[in-house]
């Protein structure tokens, strides 16, 4: 026994300093602090020397307009792509070879070609199926709840393009989520006399949804960033506003500050929403006792900070 012990000790020393956990830990801390300081001082330097604060203020309203547009596109495309993507994911797992193959082809096509290409097909290609000037959605007007909206083909094309593209990714996430549900779950549900549809709806899908949530969340954050591509179809979203200001003022850094902040605002809200959904899908009695999910989240951040000391 004592022999083995001393044997172990000599192993550690012969492994050199790298075998020492504390050393590796300190090295890691040193590297991350160095990196953090480097990035922070670079940003600080930019903020002090490159950013024109009066311009920053004066361009703010233009970014707010673009931000509202992006938000509209994101909300609509998100809701559509998650709900239709769930259906597409179900179609992927269908026992009918016709349904499952057609949905596989769909996924392969929309995952396999660039979003930019898909946007071009929809924005430039589709209207040319009509005679010039005859395309019915070339200009449109709708009234919802007393407000009327009008526009041209750019906004619908953007929403359709993002939705069709992200349906493919959500479908894959759902398919994986369903595959990860144990076969015994379906068997147990069916042996109670539930039909296949009942068993899917009440037993398999709720579990598949939880399995798929992280992947869907990831995809929806990518969807937010994909709106930056809409600048190529002349939609006045955040990147287009940047390009206008930069080419007029020859000052890239000032508008870039807003670009960065606006994207982070959307993506970080999205992350928050996803972690709340993930928490809700964590099945145990504890979560029902907690007053609010936000409070729990704040609590866990506090815990994380406390642990550092």
């Amino acid at each position: 026994m004592s022999e083995t012990h001393s044997q172990n000790e000599s192993d550690v020393s012969s492994g050199g300093v790298l075998a020492n956990d504390t050393f590796v830990r300190r090295l890691g801390e040193l590297l991350s602090v160095t990196l953090g300081l480097a990035v922070a001082s670079f940003l600080g330097w930019i903020m002090f020397t490159q950013v024109d604060y009066s311009l920053l203020q004066s361009v703010f309203p233009r970014f707010v307009e673009a931000f509202k547009l992006v938000l509209t596109i994101v909300v609509i495309s998100s809701i559509l792509s998650v709900s239709l993507g769930t259906l597409m994911g179900l179609a992927r797992t269908s026992s009918s070879p016709v349904t499952s193959r057609i949905s596989k082809v769909y996924v392969e096509f929309f995952r396999g070609t660039p979003l930019l290409f898909q946007l071009f097909v929809i924005y430039f290609g589709i209207p040319r199926l009509w005679a010039v000037g005859q395309f019915p959605l070339g200009s449109w007007e709708i009234a919802i709840a007393g407000f009327s909206y009008a526009g041209d083909w750019r906004l619908p094309a953007a929403i359709i393009g993002l939705t069709l593209n992200h349906i493919a990714y959500v479908a894959e996430a759902i398919r994986g989520g369903i595959a990860a549900v144990d076969d015994g779950q379906l068997e147990a549900a069916r042996s109670l006399g539930m039909s296949n549809v009942q068993a899917m709806r009440r037993v398999v899908l709720p579990q598949a949804w939880r399995n798929a949530l992280p992947a869907i969340g990831n995809d929806q954050i990518i969807l937010v960033k994909d709106t930056s591509l809409l600048t190529v179809i002349a939609l006045q979203e955040i990147m287009s506003v940047f390009r206008n200001i930069n080419s007029n003022q020859l000052d890239p850094w000032t508008p870039l500050v807003w670009v960065c902040l606006f994207y982070l605002l959307v993506t970080m809200s999205m992350s928050l929403l996803i972690s709340i959904l993930e928490r809700r899908a964590d099945w145990s009695s504890e979560q029902e006792e907690s007053e609010s999910h936000l409070k729990r989240l704040v609590g866990s951040i506090g815990e994380g900070l406390g642990r550092r000391q």
């Binding site: 015994g184 147990a188 042996s191 579990q207």
Partner: peptide
């Protein structure tokens, strides 16, 4: 016909 399985197969979300 009721059935009970080796691996329980309870629905974890309920």
């Amino acid at each position: 016909i009721g059935m009970v399985f080796q691996s329980f197969n309870l629905f974890p979300h309920m």
